[in-house]
Design a protein around this nucleic acid. Structure first.
Lengths: 337, 337
DNA sequence: ATGAAAGCGCTAACAG
DNA sequence: CTGTTAGCGCTTTCAT
């Protein structure tokens, strides 16, 4: 069994009381220099570490934050997590990462887990499946500090940070138009997700600006965000089998982009000769792809940082916060063709 | 402030003692059906969750395990983490993921963090920089259950699980030889890492078998595992600038493979016309790459699962475990050319 | 300057 | 069947 040394161990070893030892370690003033030195040296020697559970129990906070993302294998999220960690570590907080794999059930369980693990706050990006926000609302109403990033809910009133999805989608779509495409399809995640709504809006805005009619047949939703390859495959096939086949696809996410490319490759459809692609992606290997994929990149690291700063502000605020911020950060378009 | 309801809240609300409430919830037998029903219903109503810190303090375990990997953005690790989570969740454990980014300093801090956060055990894959094992040895000596996976230390006596790196490297190198290459270089991570040693051995074994002399100039180590692009770039350039330029490179890791491909692309060196590549990688997008990269794939998910099962066995064992296992799992070679 | 004691939330041994 | 109490490790009054 792993039994780390306790205050009491030090106290008995040194013939002191636990409170004296505690004071010596906490660096309180009312303590003699020699006792303090004695305790500190001994603690150092045995590599004493205070029991965090005891501390949390006493102080009613755990100095840890919970993170809920769809998957760490997604480059956007792994970069955002790096941003989160950079701030959290610097401020003395631990980071507990959980993955939903785009499943609503898993999201509920994870949120439950984290809350019951008494994290001091939550950084959440909703799963593609999530429609019902009860599990989060209830926790929020009970006072759990939370900040949403990337995929944010409409109806929970707290800090939110997103990329400028509409502008990013507009830029990508307009780039396709300027490349000569007119029949631009849109492959996207589940319809209720904030990022889907915003990116769809940007897509439509670009078409409108250039007097291209929006064709509903060209818009394909994947309710599971492309977590299942068949889901993406079917959507792409439906697009390709249309009588009036699209000459371009604007894809709303990383996983969907990969899925789409795989289908095209399998069918031996040449990009960009037969179809041109642009999509949201934070992958760092797009340059190595055989087929060019222009990409809208989100400032993931920065978003992670900002979200964490916002959350720590909520957590450490003495008074209830009632003014919430809706931060929007610009995306970058990387053209490949 | 987020103040979840406690046993005492239920007790006062219902006019019972905390122990009665505790028993009702714990489902102990010595409790009347009606009291139990009353308590359960009320607890359900207010969504009572036991305070995990209090539980950990009492039971002297946290039902959580710590994971130390170099980065979650690495496909091998993200897949391994999925395997870890699958077992851990099923057995009621939380998973706390930390990243070293191949830094020894960060590894030390993370291990310290996790230990002080009183995880019940540790799943560790060493960082590329790690030479000194004191921080782990000391913890291990004090009884912290730990299992190493993928990058394992020689001198710490516990369960270990690795891919059959030597065989995988042999297969990849032999594949290059059978493709007609004779001047095969080896680009690898830091020299002390177990995976580097084993893969180097497999590489040499394949050359030996086919009567090709090992050329020390052809072997390039990257002490930071390719975390810094310049590191990889320099190593690749050194290989390309050799008088007797290699006609193939066997690359020992995912990040290095990406880095190498990027350099070749930048220099406009054609693959496989001018140079042929094979490397360890668990990426799922290699098929989409412009340049073919034959890959040795590790059974990451399975390794994560097995490591976790081994760790839980250590954690939950009533008696000190003295028999340790060294599990080796086969890799798969995916040929692309 | 130091020690004794209470309390954070929970469980379990002991009384009743 | 239920209540009282002690104790997990720690900090913090309150005494001394």
């Amino acid at each position: 069994m792993f039994e780390p040394p306790t205050l009491k161990d030090i106290a008995t070893a040194l013939g002191l009381s636990t409170s004296t030892v505690s004071r010596a370690l906490r660096d309180t003033y009312e303590i003699s220099a020699k006792t303090k030195k004695l305790v500190l040296e001994y603690a150092e020697k045995i590599n004493y570490q205070p029991n965090p559970n005891a501390l949390s129990l006493k102080e009613r906070r755990s100095k840890s934050i919970g993170v809920v993302v769809s998957e760490v294998a997604n480059h956007y999220f792994s970069q955002a997590i790096n941003g989160i960690e950079s701030i959290a570590y610097a401020r003395g907080y631990h980071v507990i990462i959980t993955q939903t794999h785009e499943s609503y059930a898993r999201e509920k369980i994870n949120i439950q887990h984290l809350a019951s693990r008494s994290v001091d706050g939550l950084l959440v990006s909703l799963s593609a499946e999530t429609n019902d926000l009860h599990h989060l609302k209830e926790l929020h109403d009970r006072g759990m500090p939370m900040v949403f990033f990337d995929r944010v809910p409409e109806s929970i009133h707290t800090h939110k940070i997103t990329a400028n999805n509409e502008q990013g989608a507009f830029d990508a779509t307009e780039h396709l138009i300027k490349s000569g495409c007119r029949k631009i399809a849109h492959l996207t995640s589940s319809a209720q997700l904030s990022i889907s709504i915003e990116r769809l809006r940007g897509y439509k805005a670009a078409l409108n600006k250039h007097d291209i009619k929006v064709n509903p047949d060209y818009i394909k939703h994947c309710p599971h965000g492309g977590m299942f390859p068949e889901e993406t495959e079917q959507a792409v096939l439906e697009l390709l089998n249309l009588k009036d086949k699209p000459d371009a696809i604007f894809i709303a996410g990383d996983r969907l982009s990969i899925g789409c490319l795989e289908v095209l490759k399998k069918l031996d459809i040449k990009v960009p000769e037969e179809i041109t692609l642009a999509g949201f992606s934070n992958s760092d290997v797009l340059n190595l792809f055989e087929y060019p994929l222009s990409s809208v990149r989100q400032p993931a690291f920065e978003m992670g940082k900002t979200a964490t700063e916002m959350l720590l502000q909520l957590i450490e605020s003495k008074y209830p916060v009632t003014e919430f911020e809706d931060r929007v950060i610009d995306t970058n378009l990387f053209i490949r063709d």
